[in-house]
Amino acid sequence: MLVSIANWDTERLPRLQGWLAARLTDIYPALRASRYGPDAPEVLVQRGHILPVLDGLDEIPAQGRTAVIAALNGSPADSDQVILTSRTGELTDAALARDVLASAAVIQPQPLAPGTAADYLASCLPPVPPPDWASTLRQIRDGGAPHLTDVVSTPLGLWPVHHPHHHPH
């Protein structure tokens, strides 16, 4: 579940589990249907069925980052797993300020080669892709569309390009 960390009011909801349950209720109000029981969002979170991707640590002020990291460090239970995204510089600044996430592995993705990105997109298409797609893949491979090649060099940029509701321009 992708959630913006900027929406976390750590004063009002100091524990990650409580905030995630509240976000689940906001994003998926159908979970409050009586057939799921009175506390379905809380149960999903408590049993570790939600993998939150906490997005935008780098987009909040340093004081906010400190509060969020402190709240995360104060929240973990055995079943909790969290992915926290940030630009490298802000994460390094937080670490230097000793605002570190306990028991965390830091993963920094490498840029995708144009051929790798084009191969992935091709694998999502029919064996004979529509002409627009064939042209787009060729441009990614040979650098004919530098801005597009730039976008698909990261998984975050590649995902919306291949999504069926998006079409190459």
Rank of each mutant, 00 (worst) to 15 (best):
H163V: 00
I50W: 09
Q17A: 14
D132K: 03
A113W: 02
D93Q: 13
T10D: 10
A62Q: 15
V3N: 05
A21G: 12
A105N: 00
D80W: 05
E11W: 09
L121K: 08
P76Q: 06
R12F: 13
P126M: 06
P146L: 00
P126S: 09
P130K: 04
S75G: 02
S153V: 04
T10L: 15
S153K: 03
A113V: 04
S34N: 11
S34L: 13
T154E: 14
S4T: 03
Q108R: 14
A104I: 04
N7L: 11
A117H: 10
D142I: 07
L54S: 10
D26C: 01
G64C: 02
A30V: 15
W159H: 14
A40E: 04
H147T: 12
N7K: 15
W8G: 14
V53P: 05
L137I: 12
V151M: 04
G74H: 01
L121D: 09
I83S: 00
A122T: 11
V151H: 05
N7M: 04
R32P: 00
D99P: 01
R35F: 13
E90M: 03
H169N: 09
Q110N: 15
D150F: 07
I60P: 10
A94L: 05
A70M: 00
A94F: 07
L148Y: 13
